[in-house]
Design a protein around this nucleic acid. Structure first.
Lengths: 343, 343
DNA sequence: CACAACTAGGAAACCGGTGTCATAATGAAG
DNA sequence: CTTCATTATGACACCGGTTTCCTAGTTGTG
């Protein structure tokens, strides 16, 4: 069953110091790559470290340095794949550091969300936290982080805070260019299924849509514009509303992929072929986008890259202002857009 | 902007002791609920703690106790929703403790996965780790945890380890009863799309399928049995194979929901109505199961409950053997199963 | 009332690192 | 060959808790 060492105590810095015949401060200097060490001392200590398999105790370091090496992720699961990709992105960034990522799913509908988070931050004394949308839009939460002296980065779709505390994408521009894409394909009658009120992302996507409409001088029709909740069910309802119209649009932009998938079902039930009778563009590039038929043209956030940048902002905070705050999304063209059938 | 206290040092146990006029050991006793304290002492100290807003430093405790309060989650993203639900389940279990959950996505195809994990475990000195399938099936990984003296719980679909290190579900039985369900509906010609070779879950699900077939004396036909990789694309291929047969089955059990969704597409493309011409049962109850049409009958792992049990096994390890190791899955009946059209 | 037995609380060392500052070793200059 | 800088290293206190062990106070018993 492999080499067991259950009862052997982990070697400490004192063990290394004793075996190497130096003081523990010297060992500490080796670990921390202090420049003022003679090469042969360094090598001697390093070989002892290797021989003993010594690994510094992170808790002791945290105590002595008065800061730990834990990054937190606060999120209210907007989308499982996004959260997971974010975790992976952070991991990529901290792989060769001593940092670790601790997660904290929260419930934004709970009245004591802020108390829960306060409790969490106080107990764990995190080095910093990432805040994912939609709770990244919560100003009280940001204030709480400042109060508790916890570094933070808010992820979002628009400028929520000063750049060093923020990593955002360009929802508004990319949605406008999604409209461009529809127009290029020949559409002039374009509908919108919107995200829930109060969500910054929903607002940005709507504004981007309207920018696009205006840019091309297209007709805006209130009845082609339905509210949604970013859920599949709300998408069904919204699509029913728009597609039952006698004079329906030839394309719709839907503010997330779940609602876009729902719209496809509604279209199919009404005997409309996607994309021939109805073109659809979604948003998120969630797994469902490529698992429905036809595969959905959608917008992809560069979530892993955003996570990495955010991690660097927390860790190397001195050059946080050198890092970009805004990473562009991308329109992923699949098969849910085609030229309109008639005209 | 709320009350700032950026430059105020966090109060320590010494501050509390001084203000309360007791020794720090007494404060420590209050925190740790020692029974041998006079009530008025306890109350005095507690009121000082509240007044100062004192919160014990977890790193200092970890150092003194020679164990920390970090639980790790090792996974290779089999399914984002599952991983996230697992995280939430763990959080529920540790909400009122001092534990936190640190995540570590890994790549099981990377040749240095084990080294990465070793590095992680050594650096972080976790209290214990959860290992999600499929890497929970890796014996070398379990051996590594034992070697590093890190408690672990392996999640799985079958007995991988002794019960105190394991939380599993009953894939085999539940799949057999999914077959029962199909038989009750009148099916006698049932196909199988299998998971990838080498996956314990794939094996269990196949065996459960075969149990069900045998139990009802149904015909086993090799051409109704196709391999898959748990991916959408592999599901397309497998379903093509089975549904192109002149003499195709009237129902199929598909080893996960992604492949089941793929099978629905194939069926539709071939002009087969689900469920009238073809009944389908999936496995996982992933979001896609309720977002496709018709909604998929599938098997749901009680993943949050499993996560909670697993957390208790790690934390209260003394009574780990009292906790259940096996939590039953559930067949979620939706609309992808109906009696076969013609006898 | 003397003495044990038990209780509540404190002093000091310790966990395993890091910071500060003093000192030994080295090299350069006079 | 001193003397002074400069560099490399060590001694020791400290981070903020816990453990061990001891003392003083309280209660019970003969």
């Amino acid at each position: 069953m492999g080499s067991e060492r259950r009862n052997e105590r982990q070697p400490t810095i004192n063990d290394v110091a004793r075996v190497a015949g130096v003081s523990k401060k010297t060992v500490s200097r080796v670990i921390n790559r202090s420049p003022l060490l003679k090469d042969d001392t360094r090598q001697k200590v390093e070989s002892v470290i290797a021989e003993l398999g010594y690994v510094p105790n992170p808790q002791a370091r945290a105590l002595a340095l008065r800061r730990n090496f834990l990054l937190g992720l606060l999120h209210d699961n907007p989308n499982a794949q996004t959260v997971l990709n974010f975790q992976i992105g952070v991991l990529d960034a901290i792989r060769d550091t001593n940092f670790a990522l601790v997660v904290r799913p929260v419930n934004r509908h709970s009245p004591n969300m802020l108390d829960d988070i306060r409790d969490f931050l106080e107990k764990q004394r995190l080095y910093g936290v990432f805040i994912l949308p939609p709770i990244s839009e919560n100003e009280e939460l940001a204030a709480l982080c400042r109060e508790l002296d916890c570094a933070y980065v808010r992820m979002g779709s628009t400028q929520l805070d000063s750049p060093q505390y923020l990593v955002e994408s360009n929802d508004r521009e990319i949605v406008a260019s999604a409209v461009d894409h529809l127009v290029e394909m020949g559409h002039r009658r374009i509908g919108l299924i919107e995200g829930p009120e109060g969500f910054r992302s929903a607002f940005e996507r709507r504004e981007g849509f309207l920018d696009g409409i205006r840019r091309h001088g297209l007709e805006y029709r209130a009845e082609w514009h339905a509210p949604g909740q970013y859920t599949f069910d709300s998408g069904i309802e919204a699509a029913e509303r728009i597609l039952s119209l006698p004079d329906r649009p030839s394309a719709i932009f839907v503010s997330n992929d779940e609602m876009a998938a729902a719209s496809m079902h509604v279209a199919r039930n009404k005997g409309l072929l996607v994309p021939d009778d109805l073109s659809i563009i979604g948003f998120d590039d969630s797994p469902i986008a490529s698992h429905i038929w036809p595969p959905l043209t959608t917008v992809r956030w560069p979530i892993r890259e955003m996570a990495s940048v955010a991690a660097h902002k927390l860790i190397d905070s001195e050059d946080a202002d050198q890092l970009p705050s805004r990473l562009p999304s991308q329109l992923i063209r699949r098969s849910s857009v085609a030229p309109p059938r008639e005209k």
